[in-house]
Each structure stands twice: as C-alpha cells, then as structure tokens.
C-alpha cells in the first residue's frame, strides 16, 4: 500500500464503493477504501488511486478526464455526476459513496450495460435525414467515393449562425446516460426511448437542414415523447446542464403542429 496513506499530515477520505459481479455475487456489497486526499482531487482520481494501490479488480469506465467523453457518469453521494469533474472537496464530506448509474444492468462494479441506451440512440437516427433519401448517407470519402454533388445534387444546405445557435444547448450532450437513468418513465418502462435519445432527436429536429416529415415520426410514438411527463429529473441530473425537458416540450409541440397541419417548423422545408 502507498506510504502516503499512513502519513499523519495527509487528510484521508473514505470511498464506499458498490461492488457487484452478477456472475459471482448474489447481491451488491460496499467496500470502504481509505484514500489520501490531495488538493484538487476528483472522484475519478480517488477511484484510480484505489485501482492502482488497493484493489486492481475494481471495474469502472473512464476516458477523457475532462467531462467530454461521457464515460464516467455514476452516482456519487446519491447524485448523478461525472466522476472526472466532481471535486472531492465540493462533496463536503469525508465519506464518499460511489454507485453505478441506477436502472441500467450492472456488468461489474461501476460499469453498467449501455447497449440498450445506445440502441435507442441509433433508433432516433442521430444524423441529418432528408426527404430526398440522400441526407441519411454518411459523408463519403476515400477512393471511389461519389462527388458531393452526387450525394445532394446541385444543393448546398446552408444554415445561418442564428439557426445554428437555436439548438446549441442540445449539441453539447456527451451521452453519459445520467438523464435516462434518472427518469421515472424509464424506470417502469425500459422500452421508453428516454431523454438522451429524444434530446438527440430534438438536436436534429431543430436543425433547419433536417426533414421534419421524417424526423418527427421517429420520436412521437407512445414509447417516444409521450412517455415524458415533465418530471424534470433529467434536467436536474444532466452534468452538462442541458435544459432537456424544454427540448422534449419543443418536440411535443412540433408533433402537434404537424398533426394539425401546421407543418411545424416555421419557414422550414418540411418535405423536400
């Protein structure tokens, strides 16, 4: 064990980490780790210290360490946080409880199964769709790829800075999964697309280059936006502080406007 742990002048914090291997354990347990505190220490640094010095079998996901990759969302002292941007000192407690994101199946310890989450992400077609059937094509590159004008014949999809700014909030989602994990509608109905996938849907629905006639039906089923009951848990849980509920409300209005024949996008090219 690291000699710093025994040093009298080093303050110690205690990490209570939920441990669970469904292939071995009957139920989850908590391991308590004494971790030497250093100024500026994040929860992720504490967990990595445990991994390096005490227990190499602790399973967790992380990558960028700067709140950009969305890998390390977990429950820290009972709240949804990114371990990498959560300062230990901000928790104002020497006891730190770390649990995996709830309502996803646990694979091991702090690692949860996000395959359902990403299946829903794919289901909302997280790319521009268009009425001409061309817009769903991935940008082509490499030898033999069609020239851009073949993908969108004679057309340049222009967007004003103001139109881009309108959905800025929705573009900063890092798909950490905290919002969907926090949503009571998802707790009881795991088939619900969930706030993250719907926010991604909104990001494209609000994009003037996207086709609403194709977009809205992807989102407006009974397992889509109508499972949202403006509970606001997602907005509260989001580590990037995205007003998710507001975006989902916009989607509901778009769907209603389309149903009532209003087109639903101001001057948008509703169907190209």
């Amino acid at each position: 064990m690291d000699q710093a742990l025994g040093a009298a002048d080093t303050p110690t914090v205690y990490f209570n980490v939920q441990r669970y291997d469904p292939e071995v354990d009957a139920k989850p347990r908590y391991d308590r780790f004494a971790v030497p505190y250093e100024p500026g220490m994040t929860v992720l640094q504490g967990l990595l210290w445990i991994l390096d010095h005490v227990d190499g079998s602790l399973a967790l996901r992380y990558s960028c360490r700067e709140a950009a990759c969305g890998s390390c969302a977990m429950l820290v002292n009972g709240w949804y946080r990114l371990a990498c941007k959560t300062q230990v000192k901000d928790l104002r407690s020497k006891e730190i409880t770390v649990q995996p994101l709830p309502h996803y199946p646990v694979i091991k310890d702090l690692v949860v199964d996000m395959s359902g989450f990403f299946a829903k992400y794919r289901a909302v077609q997280p790319y521009l769709v268009g009425g001409d059937g061309q817009r769903a094509v991935e940008p082509a590159s490499g030898p033999g790829a069609p020239a851009p004008e073949e993908v969108a014949p004679g057309r340049e999809f222009r967007q004003s800075p103001a139109d881009r700014a309108a959905f800025e909030d929705a573009t900063i989602c890092i798909l950490c999964g905290a919002c969907t994990s926090s949503c009571p509608s998802f707790w009881t109905n795991p088939d619900y697309l969930g706030p993250a996938a719907l926010l991604k849907g909104y990001r494209f629905a609000a994009d003037t280059r996207d086709c609403l006639a194709e977009r809205v039906p992807l989102l407006s089923g009974e397992d889509g936006i109508y499972r949202c009951h403006t509970i606001f848990n997602c907005t509260a849980a989001c580590p990037k502080e995205i007003p998710i509920t507001e975006a989902l409300q916009s989607l509901k209005r778009m769907a209603s406007r389309r149903l009532l024949g209003g087109g639903g996008g101001g001057g948008r090219q509703a169907a190209r």
Partner: peptide, 13 residues
C-alpha cells in the same frame, strides 16, 4: 434493441 421505432403498438397520430 429495446425502444426501436415501431415498437409502439399504437400509431404515432
């Protein structure tokens, strides 16, 4: 995948 479009047993309208 759960929650793929078309899983809803009710029309979108």
């Amino acid at each position: 995948p759960a929650g793929a479009p078309g899983n809803a047993r009710v029309s979108r309208r």
